[in-house]
Design a protein around this nucleic acid. Structure first.
Lengths: 203, 203
DNA sequence: GTCTATATGGGGATAGAC
DNA sequence: GTCTATCCCCATATAGAC
């Protein structure tokens, strides 16, 4: 057994609690947004006190950043776990569907469209940025493969496609469709995919 | 001359200053967002003191709400001013292009995608809600005309089209295209229109 | 109606006991 | 490492002089 595996019960409990805190933060961020989320909220939802929370994460910014990092890791894992026979366009559809389902289940949009402040916070984190870049490059490759196959518009710049793709993961239409449109989650997912890839115009 | 037109110089100046305040608020909201915008910011940008600001608008919420109301009025005016020979799809394209240009010029997205708090604030304002509903109904008609003409997908529910359309006015892709993509404003507008109506997939 | 100066409250962060 | 109790800044909102 390696040294890293030899965690005392206490340390194991500590790590577990950290995940609990990250889960609580994820839900608070999804429901109230960064500015309205308070450290008291998170602490009480995670069942610990505020000073204990600060033993795990030394600031509100760091806490939120860790949540976003975990989310990017999840996305990367999802990509890595896709069936090998999936074509590039289907990989994009599948990843977007996954992201939308995560959101609909009370998770977060993995693009922080929200405020300039939040964007600044994240771009100041090297760990976050390096993961974002890695994911971006992966998706860039997939988009270019899809263009070569003629599955995506060849005349549309790759970055236009990618930024619009990212934006769909945090599209407010999702919430409007749920609240005002009374759609089921899976219907929302398929409508969002349709709008994203096929657009609104008739052919 | 009607009584309403008989404003003293003082009152005229008061009204003018109100517009200055609304302009300043619009720019602050666009750059910092609601939560980070402070009344000190607005007051100093408008060139008045904070107590004077509170003589015009009795709370931060009311101030922001008035800005959004003015924006909806502008949108309605723009729709009303469109050339009579414009088809329904072209009216939608033209309005979205207008909204995106307003944003790119330092204005606001007219959908407050931002936070649940801001949405709550607006839905509590009868004046805002009635205008939003009126605009919504106008656009609903236009979408249905476009569907009848075969310009928009008939099989796609009207509300799916509308909510996605609204979402394009506050699409974060706009900012990403400007900051990272280094596109010119007009290129951003045309790319956004393309993605919105034609989608990403090749036909 | 406009200012200077101030009250009030909330939330991020910490001291110090255990 | 966890808690109770507290610090302290900052932003909304106002009192009161002119």
């Amino acid at each position: 057994m390696g040294i890293l595996g030899r965690l005392s019960f206490k340390d194991q409990a500590f790590k577990l609690r950290e995940q609990t805190v990250l889960d609580a933060t994820t839900h608070m961020l999804a429901s109230k947004g960064f500015d309205l989320m308070t450290m008291d909220d998170v602490a009480s939802k995670a069942g610990i006190s505020k000073p204990s929370l600060y033993k795990h994460f030394k600031s509100k910014d760091e806490l939120a950043t860790e949540v976003m990092i975990r989310l990017l890791d999840d996305a990367q894992d999802h990509l890595a776990g896709q069936a090998a026979e999936l074509g590039p366009l289907d990989r994009l559809r599948d990843l977007l569907a996954w992201a939308l389902r995560v959101r609909l289940a009370g998770g977060l949009p993995f693009l922080p469209s929200s405020s300039p402040q939040v964007r600044g916070m994240l771009t100041r984190s090297l760990r976050y940025v390096s993961r974002a870049i890695k994911l971006h490059k992966t998706l860039q490759n997939i988009v270019e493969q899809a263009k070569e196959r003629g599955e995506l518009r060849g005349e549309m710049p790759t970055d236009v496609i990618l930024y619009s793709y990212y934006a769909r993961t945090c599209d407010p239409a999702v919430e409007y469709l749920r609240v005002y449109g009374k759609y089921q989650d899976e219907d929302i997912v398929s409508h969002m995919l349709q709008v994203c890839f096929e657009g609104m115009s008739n052919r």
